[in-house]
């Protein structure tokens, strides 16, 4: 950016963020200091992932997650994180008559 000067609002906003580089905007290689290191237990192979998305951050996840929770259950999409409807936990949402209101009633599952 040494030879470029911001002339309009959008360019100035980009310049503001140069100091704190925006990870999601970077192609590889990501600067080492900014590269997220994914904790064990985070599932990233699917994109977006459950705890983190494929870039290792949380910016690309479903928002809010509850919007998608029931769908994940019915389509058995996140077998390690959300109980699946097809085989293992057919009754998981039994206490949750209206998913939009009662999602808090669905319980943790202890196999």
């Amino acid at each position: 950016m040494k030879h470029l000067r911001a002339v309009n609002h959008k360019a100035r906003r980009i310049q503001e963020h140069i100091e704190n580089d925006v990870v999601a905007m970077q192609g590889p290689p990501t600067p080492a200091g900014q590269r997220p290191h994914v904790p064990m237990g985070c599932s990233i192979v699917f994109s977006p992932g459950w705890e983190v998305d494929s870039s290792g951050g949380t910016a690309g996840l479903c928002q809010p997650v509850e919007r998608d929770l029931y769908d994940c259950y019915i389509s058995c999409y996140w077998p390690a994180q959300v109980p699946d409807h097809m085989n293992n936990y057919p009754d998981w949402t039994a206490k949750c008559a209206a998913a939009t209101k009662d999602w808090r009633n669905i319980d943790l599952v202890f196999p």
Binding site: P36, H37, V38, P39, C42, W50, E51, V52, T58, V65, L69, A80, Q81, V82, P83, Y89, I106, L108, V109, F110, P111
Partner: peptide, 15 residues
């Protein structure tokens, strides 16, 4: 340290 604040885990496998 890089901290991820995630949603609850709905299945607990490892009691």
């Amino acid at each position: 340290s890089y901290l991820v604040v995630a949603i609850p885990l709905y299945v607990r496998w490892d009691e």
